[in-house]
């Protein structure tokens, strides 16, 4: 039982990373209606910017805020330059462009900052919270920040006019234009916000996995999984999904003999597919009705 609890706690700690990423994914899904495969790389690139700022001597929190601002602007710019011309193109073309962005960011980061692993500081410290090797202060801080972002997002989307306009633009762009919403700007704003949240995720994740151009690839996979399990339309679902993926992964690794450790990832993914087969729109996702 003790082992079980320990593994759940450890799972929650890693799950915090996935939850953070899943939140960023759902965020952009809400704004643009696509899964952005380049999201992890955007977060990674932002984290490198933060690292560079700190190398130049900025204190942690200044670099933190500056990175968020830069990432937001870069997200908006990216939408306006690279994605705007794709307006109205098939979904498959969008996905290819996301793949292209992935390749560009990954390769550019490697080129600028090379592929050596770099340590990244944590503002929360590394001392253990509940005894050895389970959850560190940093893990706790990361979970707290994820939850705070979740609350802020909820407030933003439910209780501000611009949040309402963003939801409307994503749900029904044609109608949104008819009420005078500048849909193009809402999409750009969505990209900016997603990039900013991704930057936060990256800066929180980097102390755990260390900073390098490929740091986000597997995390993005888990983030996707978490987001989809939770239901892509629900930020809360994404967070819950992210935590569950972390816990499932850990438990499978510990308790399924022989196969578990080697195929941790496989088992987690199989479970996710199983969940989806039972509940095709995720745990908290909305069932979308189609009319003829």
């Amino acid at each position: 039982m003790d082992l079980f609890l320990h593994q759940v706690l450890a799972g929650l700690a890693t799950g915090g990373i996935y939850a953070c990423m899943a939140l960023a994914i759902v965020m952009i899904y809400q704004a643009i209606d696509h899964l952005n495969f380049a999201q992890g790389e955007m977060a990674m690139f932002s984290t490198f910017i933060a690292w560079q700022l700190m190398q130049w001597g900025l204190p942690y929190w200044v670099a933190f805020v500056a990175t968020i601002v830069i990432s937001f602007a870069a997200g908006v710019l990216l939408e306006q330059t690279v994605l705007r011309p794709l307006h109205g193109a098939p979904v498959l073309s969008h996905i290819v462009v996301f793949i292209a962005l992935f390749a560009i960011l990954n390769s550019a980061a490697g080129f600028i900052w090379d592929y050596t692993v770099k340590p990244f500081p944590t503002p929360f410290g590394t001392q253990p919270l509940f005894g050895q090797g389970l959850m560190s202060a940093h893990d706790g801080g990361m979970i707290a920040v994820t939850l705070i972002i979740l609350v802020l997002l909820y407030l933003f989307f439910r209780h501000t006019r611009i949040g309402l306009a963003m939801r409307a633009a994503a749900a029904n762009p044609a109608s949104a234009r008819l009420v005078g919403i500048r849909v193009g700007w809402m999409v750009a704003l969505g990209w900016g916000m997603a990039a900013a949240i991704g930057a936060v995720a990256g800066m929180l994740i980097a102390p755990v996995v260390f900073l390098e151009p490929n740091m986000m690839i597997s995390i993005l996979l888990y983030g996707f999984a978490g987001a989809v399990v939770g239901g892509l339309t629900s930020p809360l679902g994404a967070v819950i999904g992210g935590f569950s993926v972390g816990v499932i992964e850990n438990l499978a690794g510990t308790f399924i003999p022989y196969v578990g450790r080697e195929m941790k990832l496989t088992i987690a993914l199989a479970l996710i597919v199983a969940v989806l087969t039972v509940k095709p729109s995720g745990l908290l996702g909305r069932r979308v009705m189609t009319r003829v």
Partner: peptide, 28 residues
């Protein structure tokens, strides 16, 4: 099982398959 899934969810299921395959092939 993919029958029950559409669009993005199907994409994730197939994606899981792609991720799992090398691990399965490596498995002892």
């Amino acid at each position: 099982p993919a029958l029950r899934l559409e669009g993005i969810y199907l994409a994730l299921a197939t994606f899981a398959l792609a991720i799992a395959m090398p691990q399965i092939l490596k498995s002892s």
